[in-house]
Design a protein around this nucleic acid. Structure first.
Lengths: 161, 161
DNA sequence: CTCCTTGCAAAGCCTTTGCATTTAC
DNA sequence: GTAAATGCAAAGGCTTTGCAAGGAG
């Protein structure tokens, strides 16, 4: 069911190229770089993390382009926007992982994930009932770790982005 | 099943007072005002909308206090934070409406809601499996209105907050 | 060759913070 | 009376924007 990373990445790239062609937009190397970076990652990233990673790889991309591209990729549903309560947006791939949710501890800030195909199906049918075509969804759960020791060991808010 | 607004508001206020007492914090009129404003509303509001509404009612509250209070109310799970893709946080009451999701059209910006007790139950049990105590959750669906006419009639992005 | 994109730097906007004053308990 | 909370204004940080230069189709 779950596909591997490189398979997903090339699938995303193929889709991206066809969307771009369909809309008369251009496949620049910067856009491909951002797309690949998100699909290579196995977790959610924020705009600056994407920028820094690309710069470290020698790409001369600018922040403005990263933001522009992220908007574009979100619009065509290749990336999903999520809000982990850190007051800035995080992004993650849409393809291949569209059935999970984020569990954020309000005490220590740790972010866990859980997956459920049943959940995805339910979201899909609720959207359909409302006359919507589903692109992507993002579900955040705010609560507290039951394991107080592990939780208390981390500073609130400063934890895992 | 669904409770009326004033009932919910007083329930929230009672809970608020007991939380404050338990933590040695104070029940100021500003905090009560913010809480009431959110529970009176039948939709999600952003920080500035809350600020403006309270000022219009003659309250001399400041923005700083609105933000502080929103953090506090979120921490004790009396309000839920949601991200509708507008790059700033929206807030809504947690009590009485904890089982719904937001459906955001990426073309026209319209926000619809759908409710499902089954969904809430599933989120609850997924959280429990991961060792988490559920406080609140927020689920946003991004997609497109199937009714193209109604959708095209609104400017993208600028619509319903 | 044309028009979309990029990149820089500045502007914008939401949110947080420092500190003196006020206030709940 | 005392610690907590408010309010103001300034700072902070993420994101967007204007415009000239560059590049894909």
């Amino acid at each position: 069911m779950q596909q591997n990373t490189s398979e997903l990445t090339s699938q995303a790239e193929t889709l991206f190229r066809s969307y771009m062609k369909a809309e008369g937009l251009r496949c620049t190397s910067e856009r491909i770089d951002v797309l690949q970076e998100i699909y290579r990652a196995d977790t959610h990233l924020d705009a600056d993390e994407i920028y820094v990673r690309l710069r470290q790889q020698g790409t001369g991309i600018s922040r403005a382009t990263v933001y522009h591209t992220l908007d574009l990729l979100f619009r065509i549903n290749l990336v999903t926007r999520i809000d982990l309560g850190h007051h800035h947006t995080h992004y993650e791939k849409t393809l291949g992982v569209a059935n999970h949710l984020h569990i954020v501890c309000q005490r220590c800030g740790k972010v866990s994930e859980a997956a459920s195909g049943q959940l995805a199906g339910m979201v899909e049918s609720l959207s359909a009932e409302k006359g919507f075509t589903l692109g992507s969804f993002s579900l955040q759960v705010f609560g507290e770790c039951r394991d107080k020791e592990a939780c208390a060991g981390r500073a609130a808010g400063s934890a895992a982005d």
